[in-house]
């Protein structure tokens, strides 16, 4: 009986060690040289593999960083400036600094403001509705409300609000990876400059129809009246396609455009409540 045990141990041991030897030689033969810095760079990246940088995952981005030898076109929106300076340190290069950004939904067509004119019945994804027809409401530019954006968000930063029927961005979690921007068939998301206290001023509408048409479909549509454009002192507002657009990089957050909008299409968040008498807006401009 004891001999059986010994034989077993010897046989298995022999198989094991010969396999180890074979493996060693095979590993030597098929060894692929890889720049060890790729591993280091990858280690300093967030590891979300979200594709926000434009590369297929963090590894691919790390390879690109090492190979390019120049970080001017490479930026990880998730990790931000800290992460990029870490990468730059590893590679001994100079990283570009960018303002942190956050995804903003440019539609405020809630169930209340934008009544439904027909009922969709079919596979409940925005992409399929978009291919089928213009949507349940009179506005063909607005949010379809099926949450394709929430489904693609890797960071749990997007959730549908059951009351409004619109997705809500959780700014603390949003990394500006841009997945929602790419996914939304109506192209409603925009990456805007991130300010402290979730401060934002933006035109929450993408309806390119003429005023009377879109006003019928949605109460809070931008009707392209240019009032905000005229009141803006910083050239931050541009008009086009019956629509106003506020450039978040030029905007000084003076809040003057908000009250002039006749349809309340310009939304401001994160600011202290307005006093009855206007005082000069505090400087909230952050230079990073």
């Amino acid at each position: 009986m004891n001999m059986t045990i010994i034989y077993t141990v010897i046989t298995l041991g022999a198989i094991g060690s010969s396999a180890a030897v074979i493996l060693y030689f095979v590993a030597q033969k098929f060894k692929v040289y890889e720049d060890p810095r790729i591993d280091d760079v990858e280690g300093s990246l967030p590891g979300a593999n979200c594709g926000g940088c434009g590369y297929a995952g963090c590894r691919a981005f790390a390879e690109a960083c090492v190979k390019e030898g120049d970080l001017s076109d490479l930026y990880c929106p998730v990790g931000g400036n800290d992460c990029m300076s870490g990468v730059a340190k590893i590679l001994g290069l100079e990283a570009v600094k960018k303002d942190p950004r956050v995804a903003v939904l440019r539609c405020n067509g809630t169930c209340e403001f934008r009544p439904r004119v027909n009922a969709y019945d079919g596979a409940a994804t925005c992409a399929i509705i978009h291919a089928t027809y213009s949507g349940e409401t009179g506005c063909q530019y607005g949010c379809l409300g099926c949450g394709d954006c929430c489904a693609v968000c890797e960071f749990d930063a997007l959730h549908m609000d059951p009351v409004t029927g619109l997705p809500v961005v959780d700014e603390d979690k949003c990394t500006a990876c841009g997945a929602c921007v790419r996914e939304c068939p109506k192209n409603l998301f925009e990456l805007r400059k991130k300010l402290p206290k979730h401060r934002k001023i933006y035109v929450a509408c993408r309806n390119e129809d003429k005023g009377p048409v879109n006003k019928k479909a949605c109460e809070v549509a931008c009707i392209g009246c240019s009032k905000c454009f005229k009141v803006c002192e910083y050239d931050a507002i541009t008009m086009g396609n019956n629509l106003a657009f506020i450039d978040s990089d030029k905007c000084k957050f003076c809040r003057k455009c908000v009250p002039v909008c006749p349809t309340n299409a310009i939304i401001e968040t994160g600011f202290p409540p307005r006093r009855v008498k206007e005082e000069p807006a505090e400087s909230t401009q952050v230079t990073s």
Binding site: R116, V117, N118, A119, Y120, D121, G122, A123, I128, A131, T132, Y133, E136
Partner: peptide
């Protein structure tokens, strides 16, 4: 809501 016309793909 129920009297809205239904739209769906074929």
């Amino acid at each position: 809501m129920s009297n809205l016309i239904t739209v769906s793909p074929s």
